[in-house]
Design a protein around this nucleic acid. Structure first.
Lengths: 245, 245
DNA sequence: TCATTTTTAGACAATTCGTCAAATAATGGC
DNA sequence: GCCATTATTTGACGAATTGTCTAAAAATGA
């Protein structure tokens, strides 16, 4: 009995050993250059052994990603537990991401990888579920917060659903992160380099939610967004571009 | 002389042949599963030949990505040439992305790959510059548009720089795209599935820009965003999380 | 102590990238 | 039209990597 538990402990320890070494390889060369051979070699186990713990490379990366996501989630939790006004908690959620990003660059890169690549399909159901569940938690907590804020009158949003608001806040955070990290040379980015700019834009978005009748649109005043989108689509994007290449 | 141009034409044709086949492999299996061996084989050329045109796999993908980006840019161009109110042109910019995404799923995936992965470094200087230049064009056009809109009083934004606004709009578009395509199970996404939601949120953001004094913050009324961020950071995120793993 | 079960090792096949020297084709002078 | 020079194409090759599978080693238990 103590035998069984010792065995289990050994397995768990080895598992962690692989993960720790994987993490350090990640840190020093990026997830692109992490190889199972190298992890096994550094862990002083053979190839066959590592594949007993992780059925593919993505599974190992995925478990590392889950760890990272857990840490991020723990940080965002502080935002939700903040005792200040509802609106401040939303901002704190944004700030949590910025703090995390500043602190753990390579983690963020890995998480972005799992955000964008068709790689989730390779994960074991268990890991996939752990990952999804963490993401859901963060999204749902934010959604609850937004609902509460609206309820309390701290965030009047007569024209928008809380789901849309959550998506928007999430997009501002992660879109800016993607832009910041690669897409453009620094010159064009300007102020976006600082996390404050993102908070600033979230503030403006939240401010904008409270508007009831749009006044900026002088020509067509009682058009819904759907109608507007339809009209512009028809006016500008009906005829296709010439075939590529 | 006609000889030289014939030769050049042949080279260009072969180049295109590789690209076209690359594109079709992309379409059917995603960029992850495109291999140079296979492209060469389908093009009925040997391995060595393809490497005379593209010095690495990323270069081929990069050139495909440039093509895609060109098409997207051509679409966004229509938004800038729209004769409606400035604000509508901003919305049309967003809609252009949605139209493109709907039309060309795999293109979008490839472009997201180049947006998020540390892969730009492998491109040839020429391709990198072509890519950057297209991105710059779109960003700068949008920035000019925002500047004009502010100038014309169509988009009052007393508290924000146009650069920040551009980053925010860009983030809303691409963040939502990332979210939509992978990050979460459909259930949580809700309305975000439709492109209209993004336009909606951009509208709210633009509305929010015109606010001069924040009224939603009841406790500390004359605090700048920078101060606010500092305060929240100190209050919530000073002590670190316990070490991972 | 020995048979049975579990675990580990590392050889193996398959894929892929990118290179290189040799074969082939094109070019141009005579 | 022929041959020397130049350019191009080929496909074999090396290296890295993933994931599998069998035989050896170790642990377990009677």
């Amino acid at each position: 009995m103590s035998n069984l538990s010792r065995k289990q402990r050994e397995i768990a320890e080895r598992h962690n050993r692989f993960l720790t070494i994987g993490r350090s390889l990640l840190e020093e060369a990026g997830f692109q250059h992490l190889s199972m051979d190298r992890v096994a070699e550094l862990a002083e186990y053979s190839k066959g052994t590592i594949y007993q713990h992780f059925n593919c490379k993505e599974e190992l990366l995925g478990q590392l990603c889950v760890h990272s996501t857990q840490r991020l989630q723990a940080l965002t939790q502080r935002a939700f537990e903040h005792s200040g006004p509802y609106r401040e908690r939303v901002l704190a959620f944004v700030i949590a991401h910025d703090v995390y990003r500043t602190d753990r660059v390579e983690d963020m890169r890995l998480m972005r990888y799992f955000l964008t690549d068709p790689v989730l399909e390779k994960l074991s159901p268990k890991t996939l579920e752990r990952y999804r569940s963490l993401q859901r938690d963060m999204i749902n907590s934010l959604k609850r917060l937004v609902d509460d804020a609206i309820e309390a009158g701290d965030l009047p949003a007569p024209r928008s659903t809380s789901a849309d608001i959550v998506v928007a806040v999430w997009s501002l955070i992660h879109g800016a992160e993607a832009l910041r990290s690669r897409a453009l040379p620094p010159a064009e980015l300007g102020a976006c380099r600082t996390g404050v700019a993102v908070v600033e834009m979230v503030e403006r978005l939240l401010d904008g939610l409270k508007w009831v009748s749009p006044t900026a649109n002088n020509t067509v005043s009682h058009e819904s967004t759907t109608q507007r989108v339809e009209r512009l689509k028809n006016a500008l994007f009906t005829h296709k571009l010439p075939a590529a290449q």
